[in-house]
């Protein structure tokens, strides 16, 4: 399973951030969302989320072996091992990794166990499961 991002279709509504943080953290907080949308200008909204790329730069970059590939293709973060060193964040060419503001572990999309909330509520289909 993979996420496809069609950024031209992103309307910048950011409801994906809210549903993501609600699903994973039980609260509304874009800083705790695995997907982030940045409105850079009047015509440019850029969603950043893990697209389960082939190269898995993050897994290779992790010095502690805290990142692995789960059965559904998502990156699994072993929160016991992760120290939020940020090397995976630096390595990711898609800006898809951020650090949890209070737990101090890497936050990476886990595909919501196969039913990604962000995809579900993306009106114009900027996010798709491929």
């Amino acid at each position: 399973m993979r996420l496809l991002v069609l950024k031209n279709k992103c309307t910048g509504c950011r409801i994906c951030e809210l549903t993501c943080s609600l699903k994973h953290e039980g609260v509304c907080n874009p800083d705790k969302s695995r997907i982030k949308v940045e409105r850079r200008s009047v015509a440019l909204d850029i969603p950043a989320v893990c697209i389960q790329c082939d190269r898995r730069f993050c897994v290779a970059a992790c010095p502690l072996g805290a990142l692995s590939i789960a059965e559904n293709g998502a990156i699994h973060v072993d929160e016991g091992l992760c120290t939020a060193c940020g090397l995976c964040q630096t390595a990711c060419p898609f800006d898809a990794i951020s650090m949890h503001p209070s737990k101090h572990v890497a936050m990476i999309c886990d595909l919501c166990g196969g039913d990604p909330q962000c995809v579900k509520y993306c009106t114009l289909g900027a996010l798709k499961v491929g």
Binding site: T11, C13, R14, I15, T123, L124
Partner: peptide
Amino acid sequence: SVKTKACYACIKPCGKVFV
């Protein structure tokens, strides 16, 4: 129009970006 744009948390975006 090149793009459809939304307000925050809106799932029926009505903004049309005119270029």
